[in-house]
Amino acid sequence: MSAAGMTKRAAPVLACIGLLVVWQVASLALKNDSFPTAIGAMRAIPDILGDKESLINILASLRRMAMGFGAAVLVSIPLGLLMGRSAAVAAFFNPLLMVIYPVPKAALMPIIMLWLGVGDITKTLVIFLGVSLPVIYHSFEGAKAVEEKMLWSGAAMGLSPVQRLVRIVLPAALPEILTGCRTGLVLALITMITSEMIARQSGAGNILFNALDMGQYETVFAMIIIVGAMGICLDAIFERVRARLVRWSEPQFDMPLSFS
C-alpha cells in the first residue's frame, strides 16, 4: 500500500484518538463532576456491555429501530414512486406531507402515548414517522426524474404500467431512494433515543437518562459513545450496501478529487 493510502486509512483512527486526548486533557483541567475523563467513560463501556439487563435494553432499542425503519421503507418507497409518476396521487398526498414535514415527530409522542400507551407500538410508530418523510421525498424526486423514453422503451417491449413502475422506475430511481434511506437511518437512531427519553421504560435512551438522574456521569458518557458507535457502524454498513447496489450509476473517481 502506498504512503497516501496508509494516511487515508489511518486518518479516522488518528482523528478519534485526537478527540479523546482533547477530552481527557479538558476534563482533567476543568475538574468538574459532571464531566468525567475519557478514560473513565471508556472504562464504563465494558460494564454496560457486560450487564445482561443493559444488553436486553439496547437490543430492544435496536429491534424497535429496525421495525420502524423497515416498515417506513416498505411503505414510503412505493408511495413516493407513485407520487412521482402520477400527478393525481401527488396532488392528494403533497398537502398532507407538507403539514407533517416540519412537525418534530417526537412532539407527537404525547398524543400517541395517550392513544397507544407507552409500549413498543408507540415508539416504533414515532420512528416510522421520522424515517418516512425523507424516504418518500427522495423516492418522489427520483421517480419524477426518470427519463420518459426509458418508460416508452419498456412499454414497447410489452411491460404493463405496474411492471414499468417496479422494473423501470424503481431501479432507475434507486440511487436517489437509497440517499433518502441513508438519511432515514440516521433519523431512526435519533428518534429512537428521543422516544425512549420521553417514554422511559426500556432501551438505550432509558439507560442513559436513568444514569443522568442518578449522577452516574461516566455511564452517561459511555452510553453516548455506544450510541454514537452504533450510528457510525450502521451508516458504514448501509453505505457499503448502497455503493454495491448502485455501482452502475456512480461516477468513477480514478483521479483524486481536486480538494483532497
Binding site: 427519463e147 423514453k149 426509458m150 416508452w152 422503451s153 432507475a172 448502485v246 452502475w248
Partner: peptide, 9 residues
C-alpha cells in the same frame, strides 16, 4: 430513440 434511453442499471 434519438436519446438512446438505455437502462443504465
Amino acid at each position: 430513440f434519438q436519446e438512446f434511453a438505455l437502462f443504465p442499471w
